[in-house]
């Protein structure tokens, strides 16, 4: 008996009511469709990368853009938030871009570094929820990326032993893994 036949038997158990397509595919473990997701436009993608890079810039280690944090942010907004929050997120991003144009006559990507910083400071006042969400996902995306985990932090896959109370080494970075 294959899986589809098994599903047919389930429909018999449920009183012989024919199951609709989406229900059957759900039982079979296939991904079902729950309406559209919001996908970032290429412009929004660029903008997210720049904004993330202001939050976690390149210092003596590469920053958020180098680590591809914007790809993580787009994925998490798409897969981990209901439609309403997805729309809200991108509406905030669009407003941020508009504010940049209003303030400096240019989109955020084209601003100087100082102008970018002043825009983010303003953002903290005008749309704190968006800033917090953006900062949180930038941080998660960055510090769990290969660049963030292995260069900005100290990465050790298999410690092999435990020393729970030792003097800290000079310049010790935080462990990447918890």
């Amino acid at each position: 008996m294959n899986r589809r036949e098994a599903v047919q038997r389930i429909s018999l158990l449920m009183g012989g009511v024919a199951l609709s397509g989406p229900v059957v595919s759900g039982i079979l473990g296939e991904k079902t469709h729950f309406g559209d997701s919001v996908y970032a436009t290429p412009q929004q993608e660029k903008l997210l990368a720049e904004l993330a890079d202001v939050i976690i810039p390149t210092t003596d280690t590469p920053g958020a853009k180098a680590a591809g944090a914007e790809q993580f942010i787009i994925r998490v907004i798409r897969d981990c938030h209901p439609m309403e929050e997805q729309k809200e997120f991108y509406a905030s991003l669009d407003t941020f871009e508009k504010d940049s144009k209003a303030a400096f006559g240019k989109g955020f990507v084209a601003l100087t570094n100082d102008q970018k910083v002043s825009m983010v400071k303003k953002l903290i006042e005008t749309d704190r929820n968006f800033f917090k969400r953006m900062k949180n996902y930038t941080a998660v995306g960055y510090f769990t990326s290969e660049i963030g985990a292995t260069q900005a932090l100290e990465y050790l896959e298999t410690p092999g032993r435990l020393e729970a109370c030792i003097p800290i080494k000079p310049g010790q970075k935080a462990w990447a893994l918890g």
Partner: peptide
Amino acid sequence: RGDWKHNVAELSFGATYKDAATKPG
């Protein structure tokens, strides 16, 4: 001991934030 998450809820950003996040909390 706090890891990189220890200051994520603060309103800081930029090099200062990154530097603090990469040190043990």
